[in-house]
Structures are given as C-alpha cells and as structure tokens.
C-alpha cells in the first residue's frame, strides 16, 4: 500500500508541479495567471494520442509536434487572452479572458476528439511492472524541466532577460529589452512545459478532454502553496499535493479525498497566505 501511495502520489504530484510551473512561467512574464495551464496539459495528452496512436507517427516526431503545438497555443494565449487585458491588470480581466479561451479549447476538443477517454500509446516498448513508465515518465519530465529552467535562467542571456522582465517590466524595457517578444517567448516556453506535463502523464491520465479543468484546479494548488512565481516552491508543493491526495484516496477515498485536499489547502493558506515557500510582500511606507 505504501509503495502504491508513493509511486502514484509522486507521479501525479510531478504532473501537478509541472502545471504549476506552467502557471509560474506565464505569470513571471506578464503578472497574469493564465487559466489555460490545465488546458495545455490536456492538449499534451490528446495531441500525443492523436499524433502517435491515431496518425501512427514515430514517438519522437509525435513528441516534437506536441511541444510545438504547446508553444503555439502558448503564443495564441498571449496574443488573444493576455495582451488585450494587460493595460488593466488591476481589474483582473485576465481571469475571464484566459478562462474563456480555456473553455473554448476544451469544448472544441470535446467536439472534435470526443468526450470519451481514449488510450495514450506506450512510449517505450517495455514490459509492464511495478516502477512502470507511466510513473517514471512524469518524474523524468519534472527533473528535466527543473534542470532545464535552472540552466536557462542562470546560464543564458535570454534566461536572464526573462528574469529581468519578471523582476521589473518597466526597468527592463528602459534598458532596451524587447519586452513583448520576451513575453511571447515565455508563453511559448510555458506552452511546451504544460504540453510536456500532459504528454508524460498521458498513460496515467489518458487522452481525455475532461483532464483540462482537473489539471487547472490541482495545478493551481502548488502555485498558491509554493508562492506565486516560485518554481522550486511549486515543485515541492506539487509533490506534497500528489502524495497527500493519494494518501487521502487510500484513507478516506472517493469524493472525500478531494474534500480533504482542499481543506488542507485552505488551512495552509489561512496560516501562511504567502504560501509555504513564498516571502511576505514588504510594503513600502
């Protein structure tokens, strides 16, 4: 039982963490919480199944196309749902615009792909076993994203430019950084991470249009618990969420597991509104 809790808990926690990072990467570049993060995860699974299982493409080609589609959806999100509302950020119109885009995409997927769950292909031709690829693939994807983002942000000029606009958009623009292009690149990157989450977790979650709202909700929890824009916090909180949810599934089961998860979520936020890893915002007086 403990083995089962840990295996599925960590695997699903990694998917939540990746969706959390997707939120964060978009947030850092625009100060907008785009609720298309879960939709990206859903698209990763559905498109992976479409390209590899249905169209019969090789796994590598299917994978690259899924990432490209994720990047494209990220850019479309920025252009359609984020850019028009950036000027009035304090009115929080982005909640409406990004949710609308997410719902439209979800409904379109339901119409074109169907409302049934469909199989996601086995990516590697390995025998099924305890530590199966459906568990280790999300973990590998999670590690790859953490390492990749660290290298990007710390070692490359583009990464530092991302950090600069995340830190202070106006100052970055004053220094001559192409803020709009960097924001679009951030959304493309977030799109790829979200699609990767759905692709790596495809065998576990199946290619199902209904995964979008589930990932949107559960992927937001690591962001809130880990601190807005804090990727490391999102990773830790995502893993904790997965483990706690799986333990609750075993201990109380059914719909009560979701109740337990959100009860703890609310309690943590009451105790630490800035999140477990976030720092309290200093107010200048």
């Amino acid at each position: 039982m403990v083995e089962s809790i840990v295996l599925s808990g960590v695997a699903i926690g990694c998917i939540y963490a990746l969706i959390g990072v997707t939120y964060n990467v978009m947030f850092s570049a625009s100060r907008v919480f785009s609720f298309t993060a879960g939709t990206l995860g859903m698209l990763g699974g559905v498109l992976g199944s479409l390209f590899i299982a249905r169209a019969g493409m090789p796994v590598v080609v299917g994978f690259v196309l899924v990432l490209a589609a994720g990047a494209l959806f990220g850019v479309v999100t920025e252009v359609v749902a984020v850019r028009p509302v950036l000027r009035s950020l304090e009115q929080h119109l982005y909640v409406l615009s990004t949710l609308a885009l997410a719902l439209m995409t979800q409904q379109l997927t339901a119409i074109e792909w169907g409302t049934e769950s469909r199989p996601f292909p086995r990516l590697f031709d390995l025998a099924r076993g305890g530590f199966d690829q459906q568990f280790w693939l999300p973990m590998a994807a999670c590690i790859a994203v953490i390492v990749g983002l660290e290298l990007l942000y710390r070692r490359t000029l583009v990464g530092r430019a991302f950090l600069a606009i995340a830190e202070d958009t106006y100052a970055a623009r004053a220094l001559g950084l192409p803020e709009r292009r960097l924001r679009m690149a951030s959304f493309a990157l977030a799109g790829m991470i979200g699609a990767l989450a759905g692709f790596a977790g495809g065998e576990m979650l199946l290619a199902f249009f209904g995964n979008a709202p589930m990932l949107t909700f559960y992927g937001f929890v690591p962001v809130a618990l880990g601190g807005m824009g804090n990727n490391r916090g999102a990773m830790v909180a995502g893993l904790l969420l997965g483990l706690f949810q799986q333990a609750a599934n075993f201990l109380v089961g059914g719909i009560f597991a979701s109740v337990a998860v959100f009860t703890v979520f609310i309690l943590v936020l009451l105790a630490r509104p800035e999140g477990l890893a976030g720092a309290a915002v200093q107010r200048r007086v």
Binding site: M1, S4, S8, I12, G201, M204, L205, L206, F208, G210, N211, M214, Q246, N249, F250, G253, G254, I255, S258
Partner: peptide, 17 residues
Amino acid sequence: QGNVDAANPDLRPELLR
C-alpha cells in the same frame, strides 16, 4: 459504496477498499 471523480487516474485505493 462510493462516488469517484471520473478523471481520477488511480482507482487502486478504491478497489483495495
């Protein structure tokens, strides 16, 4: 007797119960 979210990826806990 139980109601479980259809998107829940792991039903082993329910079947063990």
